[in-house]
Amino acid sequence: MNKKKIQDLKYSTVQFERALLAIDRTTAERIISEFKNDPDRMQIISELVTNALENIGNAWEEGKVALSQVYMSGIICEELIDKLFSSFGNKQINNPVIAIAVFEDFHVLGKRIIYSTLRAGGFNIIDLGNGLSAETLVKEVKEKSIKILLLSVLMLPSALRIKQLNKLLTGIDVKVIVGGAPFRFDDRLWIEVGADATGKDPSETLKIVTKLVGEIK
């Protein structure tokens, strides 16, 4: 990208971020569509979306924006990416098998936020559902050859039982990334339960997944 394009992208990212925080789908789509005829459109749009989501995720972590804004931003970006990329005739990243689930409990919001952020970041993700037991997850990992398993929990007991799940996954080639309130309030809990990583917010999770995908490839 040349210097002017980089400057344009920076400006558009700020505008796009503002539109997302205001839940203004129309403006968000207009901004992103300005790049649809650019020869580097895939790279530019991906960068714009992931940068904006990263900034919003960081702002939430710092207490500057609310969860509703993180959630809505992810949903809007996912919709826009799906719409634009399918109109370009492009497929998403052909990544190793990545799956996401709510472990044991039924609090779906965290999973939904991560799912939409990763989809907006260009990854294909299998949504395994909610309230899954350790046994079901092990079966899914084996059957679907899952290489990255993202687990979302809200309740502390569910978070603690990920330890048992990880024992059952011993010897299987899969990376487990955990997230949810218990892991935010106790920054050592992910190590205690034997996870490979934790994402404090959607942007951190996106970075972790991007890095792991690079390593696996």
Binding site: G63, V65, A66, L67, S68, Q69
Partner: peptide
Amino acid sequence: SPTIIPRNK
């Protein structure tokens, strides 16, 4: 809480 919705909302 501002953790969940923005103050204006």
